[in-house]
Design a protein around this nucleic acid. Structure first.
Lengths: 331, 331
DNA sequence: CTGAAAGCGCTTACAG
DNA sequence: CTGAAAGCGCTTACAG
């Protein structure tokens, strides 16, 4: 293996000088820089990550902490988040360590105390999430990706689900709808205190009231069983409803089949509006009118917030709810 | 931060002894082990990962190398693979570093030469994949997750897609079908030389011939556009076909809507068979008869093969194609 | 059965 | 402008 000593020797300088060249120290002459660069290229040298990490006490690695499946249900969005988070981290010179966490913070603690990472991004944050309180108590650079009621002073990034609900209802009202159905996330999700579910629902209810829209809320019990019967039932029961709001991934996935089966066309027979990320709508062939969060942008915000925190642990806490417009389909 | 010296001091022994206790060296008395354990618990000590890695030249980390999106298309399976691979690695005492790779091996090379990982798992391996030849040439412990034509001596793990195709056709023949439609992966995928596409198709064609089944193959052009029209067209054209084989993720996702729209019921009006992993069929509400690869098991095999290789670089090359039965739906 | 010491490959004050 | 040396926190022959 080629080390810094080899490079130093080949270039006829000291290890210190090589190191300074590597870090672009302005005190080094261009002449020596060139010599050293040449030796580096010649030998194919790369800094040993562990050695550097040990020396500078930074790993340039962020931990992405994902909770386990919700029951058997794995959101199709999970992969997208992980992928884009990691891509964004790479852009900023960081690596991404995947940390699976099962309703606790043991794995996080292990990674932190052994100094494997410089900070964390917590996915799918819940109310009273043990990961949040742990990170806050230990003053670990951490951003909560999601919106718990209490973030204990952690930086927070999420889509603005309250705004999304309000946009959707305003849109429906402006189109003249008077009675609508909302299929929100399941009880399982609400019971876990997942902010995106609550924030959307609360805002939807309030906005509907304010706009004098009649809204029927039909909750699925869980996320494992087929939501089709629930949709069918809702349509059968609320026959005057002219629009269907889906804030529920499984329901959004099956909705097209249900509509096809009933021979309903969108938006003429029934207006359907959902919340589904831009990047996945294509892959999953979801073509309803929707508020489309941009996961790449959310990832950028999350990673940005984390690096800012890592570089300045006592910076002011930041909370960012990113807002996405409703796009109509077909356009 | 608490270091091994702190523990040694607190326990009244040397650093070496603490280290030996940590590694369970049998030469250490139970008495001292107890003393040291106590100090460790007291102080909340955890081994510094970089220091250990630097010393032993092993990181206990595996790199999972994922290619970029295929165009705009992100397989919903991606998240599942990453998740289960990481879970399996954790079980075996390894961390998972995510490495995004864009049609080359630069990121891999960077991770390897800076000693960030002990080996790699390559996702979505293609024919003439530069990652494969790189790993082979540099003798880097690596397993190819997927089946390229030439694996250059790398260990390989994949579902047995040839077997899957043959199971499906035998099943259809046994049910009395004489004429069937196959929608395989898109040209984009075939052109990239993705083994799962080729192996399935070749085997399907050969088996159909042997069983005297008439099979119409209808290729989608790419994976971004809606495959529904293609399915519609296939059904319109091949009116005598009584079964539809889907080996294409987007087509599998939209098929239920297409069938619903045409008022076709499965399996009475049209038998539909697909290949879709167990763990995702539920989430994605795919309930066709199918060969269901078990991604947890595949991940276990991949991680197992990699650790074996890491621990024994000159072990015999292993190629494992895991075989999954066809399960009928409804049962 | 345990400890002193060297070494892993870097970085960074500090001298000069 | 550059180098010698200490230090980051471990592990592991080697002595005893």
């Amino acid at each position: 293996m080629v080390t810094i000593s080899d490079v130093a020797h080949a270039a006829g300088v000291s290890k210190a000088t090589v190191s300074y060249v590597l870090s672009g120290d302005p005190r080094i002459t261009q002449a020596t820089t060139l010599k050293v660069q040449h030796a580096i290229d010649e030998l194919g040298y790369t800094v040993n990550h562990a050695a550097r990490a040990l020396s500078v006490r930074k790993t340039k690695t962020i931990g992405v902490v994902s909770p386990a499946f919700h029951g058997n249900y794995l959101s199709a969005l999970f992969g997208l988040y992980v992928y884009l988070l990691s891509e964004e981290a790479t852009k900023r010179g960081y690596d991404t360590l995947l940390i699976g966490e099962n309703d606790g913070f043991e794995a996080m603690h292990e990674a932190w105390s052994s100094k494997k990472v410089d900070g964390f991004i917590l996915m799918d944050v819940k109310d009273e999430d043990p990961r949040v309180s742990y990170a806050a108590k230990e003053h670990i650079p951490t951003v909560a990706f999601g919106s718990p009621k209490n973030s204990y002073g952690l930086d927070t990034v999420d889509s603005d689900f309250a705004k999304a609900a309000s946009s959707i209802l305003h849109f429906l009202a402006s189109e003249g709808h008077k009675e609508v159905i909302l299929i929100p996330w399941s009880h399982t999700i609400f019971d876990q205190g997942l902010g995106y579910a609550w924030r959307f629902l609360d805002s939807a209810i309030e906005t509907a009231k304010r706009l004098d829209l009649k809204m029927h809320v039909e909750y699925p019990k869980d996320d494992d069983s087929d939501p089709s019967p629930l949709i069918e039932h809702a349509l059968d029961t609320h026959t005057k409803a002219t629009a269907l709001i889906l804030h529920n991934e499984p329901a959004t996935i099956v909705a097209p089949q249900v509509l096809a089966r009933r021979n309903l066309r969108t938006p003429d027979d029934l207006q359907v509006v959902t919340v589904f990320p831009k990047q996945l709508a294509t892959s999953m062939k979801i073509s309803f009118s929707a508020v489309r969060p941009d996961i790449a942008q959310l990832s950028e915000a999350a990673v940005g917030a984390l690096l800012r925190r890592i570089n300045n642990p006592k910076a002011q806490t930041v909370t960012r709810y990113l807002d996405y417009p409703l796009t109509q389909e077909p356009e």
